[in-house]
Write a protein that binds this DNA or RNA. Sequence first.
DNA 1: ATAAAACCAATAAAAATACTAGGAATATAA
DNA 2: TTATATTCCTAGTATTTTTATTGGTTTTAT
Lengths: 132, 132
Amino acid sequence: MKISTKSRYGIRMLIDMYENMSESPMRLADIAQRQEVSQHYLEQVASDLKRAGIIYSVKGPQGGYFLSKDADEIIIGDVIRILEGDILLTDSHMQNDSILQQTINKSVYNKLNSRIKDLVDSISLKGLVERK
Amino acid sequence: MKISTKSRYGIRMLIDMYENMSESPMRLADIAQRQEVSQHYLEQVASDLKRAGIIYSVKGPQGGYFLSKDADEIIIGDVIRILEGDILLTDSHMQNDSILQQTINKSVYNKLNSRIKDLVDSISLKGLVERK
DNA sequence: ATAAAACCAATAAAAATACTAGGAATATAA
DNA sequence: TTATATTCCTAGTATTTTTATTGGTTTTAT
């Protein structure tokens, strides 16, 4: 029951991009090197973030990535959902659930799920970096 | 990022024991059958719960399991911790963490961890069954 | 034209999770 | 005291998920 490294890499990548932001696009190779992470693996992370509209890219030489929005509009909950699949502790509808299991879902997991959601949706990239 | 089936089985097992409680010990075979779960797998769950003092057992014929405490003293957070290892989204101290990662830990994961802990520690077996 | 970059797909490797097998220990009761 | 019902234990296997690697292709600035 851990957040995957994929999510962690993704969040680190975004923080790195925010903190090292400039006029020119940022090369994945640089991020990977600074973060000491496999570049190819980070590509997959970047690809997900791009598809979701968190970052955008410029191809070719001198190309790279930009953040698509202001840092205070990039919500950590979204980032985790994009990279983690979902932040649910259980699937909301498991097919074979007994009545008993459904009760437990309601009482425990659903409450957990919504509390976790509230929390991660309250933190932006900007807030994170500024340690708010 | 899901709660494992081990924890889910464990919680179901305890609810089953509570709801079907009687003077005589409860056989694992019966629980497994009611819950439609592999008995051998449930043994491992039971073994963990026993070692942690949540349930106790009587061996031999007519043997089985009892809850060790009143249902309102059995805390779901404890059960999950016993079966899940921990309810932390990240290890509190990852060896190779950069300063950056440590900041993220503080801002996001630690907050999440403590909120999840508060929640699961506020729910007892009794509360769960009574849907409080 | 060349080279620097993003992009893509397949798959291998590693780790975690779920489940199975088979028997040992123990206590009951006939 | 023997047969049996039960918990208990250890190891192993299978499955799934996660993480990482390999080996390219496409695009575009220079």
